[in-house]
C-alpha cells in the first residue's frame, strides 16, 4: 500500500542513502578512488556511540558528537598512515590499500571490542513517533530528513563560500593544477577525508539507530548502498551522489512493496544487476558532467 506515511518513509530512506553516498564521493572527488574502508568509518561511529555511551554518563548529544569526532579522526588517520603514501601509485594499488584498511578496521574491532553485537542506547526520539496532518510516522524519519537537509546546506555553504571548499572542488576538477597553484595536496586530501568521516559519523547515528546495536561488519551495508547510489547518480559530482542516493532509497522502498516475496531475497543482486547495466549504458552515471576528468598521477 502506498500511503503518505510510506512516502515519508521512502524519502527518509532516500535522505539517509544520499548522505551515505555523499561521504563516499567526497573522497572520490579528490583521489578518484572509491574508498572500500568507508563503511568502516560508519562502524567506528557506531562503536563511538557504544563506548562513550556506556562508559560515561553524558547527555546523548555529547555522545553523538564524540561518535562523529571518532569517525573523523579515524578517517584522517587512514589518510595520514596509509593512503597518503600510496596516492601517487596506481589506482589498483589505491583500491587494494582501501580494501586492506577496511579489513584492518573490521578485524581491529573484532580484536579490541568483540565479535558480538553491542547494544547502543539511543535517546527517546529514535523510538517515538510523531503525528502531524493526521499521519503518524516514526520521529526518526523526520529527523533523518531534517538533518540531511541541514547537512547538505552546510556542506554547500562550505564548498561554495570558503577558500578550502572552493579548493576541494577545484581539486575534484583537476588535482594537479591545484597543486601548481600552490594549494597543498595534503591539506586538500586530508580535508576531504575529515569531511567524509564527519558524514560517516552522522550516518552512523541513523544507521545504528535502526537496530540500536553495532557489529564489526555493520559498515558493509552502507558501503554497498553508496556504490549503487554513486553509479546511479554519477560518480563525478556531489550533486550526482545526492540524487543517486535519493533515487536509490526511494526505488528500494518501492521495490520492497512491489516485488513478490520470493524475489525479495534477490533484491540486492537485482540492484547490482541494475548497477552494471547503468555502467554499461552510461559509464559516467545518470548525471553527467560536461567535462573530462583525470586521475591524480
Amino acid at each position: 500500500m502506498i500511503t503518505f506515511g510510506f512516502l515519508i518513509n521512502a524519502i527518509s530512506l532516500g535522505s539517509l542513502y544520499a548522505l551515505i553516498s555523499l561521504g563516499l564521493v567526497m573522497i572520490y572527488g579528490v583521489l578518484k578512488m572509491v574508498n572500500f574502508a568507508y563503511g568502516e568509518l560508519i562502524m567506528v561511529g557506531g562503536y563511538g556511540l557504544y563506548l562513550v555511551g556506556s562508559k560515561f554518563n553524558l547527555p546523548w548529544i555529547f555522545v553523538a558528537a564524540a561518535a562523529i569526532l571518532a569517525a573523523m579522526l579515524v578517517s584522517y588517520l587512514t589518510e595520514l598512515v596509509a593512503f597518503r603514501h600510496v596516492r601517487e601509485k596506481s589506482l589498483t594499488a589505491l583500491l587494494i590499500t582501501s580494501f586492506a584498511v577496511s579489513t584492518l578496521l573490521q578485524n581491529g574491532a573484532l580484536l579490541i571490542i568483540s565479535p558480538r553485537a553491542k547494544a547502543v542506547s539511543l535517546p527517546k526520539i529514535f523510538s517515538s513517533s510523531i503525528t502531524f496532518l493526521g499521519i503518524t510516522t516514526p520521529a526518526r524519519n523526520i529527523l533523518t530528513i531534517a538533518i540531511t537537509i541541514l547537512l547538505l546546506l552546510g556542506l554547500s555553504l562550505l564548498l561554495r563560500r570558503t577558500m578550502l571548499g572552493i579548493a576541494l572542488r577545484a581539486a575534484s576538477d583537476n588535482f594537479r593544477m591545484t597543486r601548481m597553484l600552490g594549494i597543498p595536496a595534503n591539506l586538500v586530501i586530508s580535508s576531504a577525508f575529515i569531511i567524509s568521516g564527519a558524514i560517516a559519523g552522522v550516518v552512523s547515528l541513523f544507521w545504528v539507530g535502526r537496530t540500536a546495536s553495532v557489529t564489526p561488519s555493520i559498515g558493509q551495508g552502507p558501503l554497498l548502498i553508496a556504490f549503487i547510489a554513486i553509479v546511479v547518480g554519477g560518480i563525478s559530482s556531489l550533486e550526482g551522489a545526492v540524487v543517486g542516493g535519493f533515487v536509490y532509497g526511494i526505488l528500494f522502498s518501492f521495490i520492497g512493496v512491489l516485488l513478490p516475496q520470493t524475489l525479495l531475497d534477490y533484491r540486492e543482486a537485482f540492484m547490482f544487476v541494475i548497477v552494471i547495466l547503468i555502467l554499461l549504458w552510461r559509464p559516467e552515471g545518470l548525471i553527467r558532467v560536461k567535462y573530462a576528468e583525470e586521475r591524480v598521477g
Partner: peptide, 20 residues
C-alpha cells in the same frame, strides 16, 4: 570499462554471485 567503473562493476559481480 576503465578504472573506477571497472572496479565497481567487478565488485558488483562478486556480490551478485554471492547473493545467487
Amino acid at each position: 570499462l576503465s578504472d573506477t567503473t571497472a572496479a565497481i562493476s567487478s565488485f558488483a559481480l562478486l556480490i551478485i554471485i554471492n547473493t545467487v
